[in-house]
Amino acid sequence: MRISILLFGIAKDIIGSKNLEIEVNEECRVNDLKQEILNQYPGFENLKHLAIAVNNEYARGETSIKPSDEIALIPPVSGG
């Protein structure tokens, strides 16, 4: 299935766009999605530090993903 992901902060820089479309297996959890992004975009080798939100809710690794879900990739920012 095809998943569409919104990008924030430095994730936008790594991909060079504010959105990302990615093909994943039907049975997909947040951790699988992270792995798939990493396979396709090696620039994300430090992905474990990014938070993933599913439908505006912070999601842990075991959360399942459906194609209709809104996924957001949120890296930490430190500026003040």
Binding site: G9, I10, N46, K48, H49, P75, P76, V77, S78
Partner: peptide, 8 residues
């Protein structure tokens, strides 16, 4: 955990 130095 924090991002590695230099990433952000």
């Amino acid at each position: 955990t924090p991002p590695p130095p230099g990433l952000v």
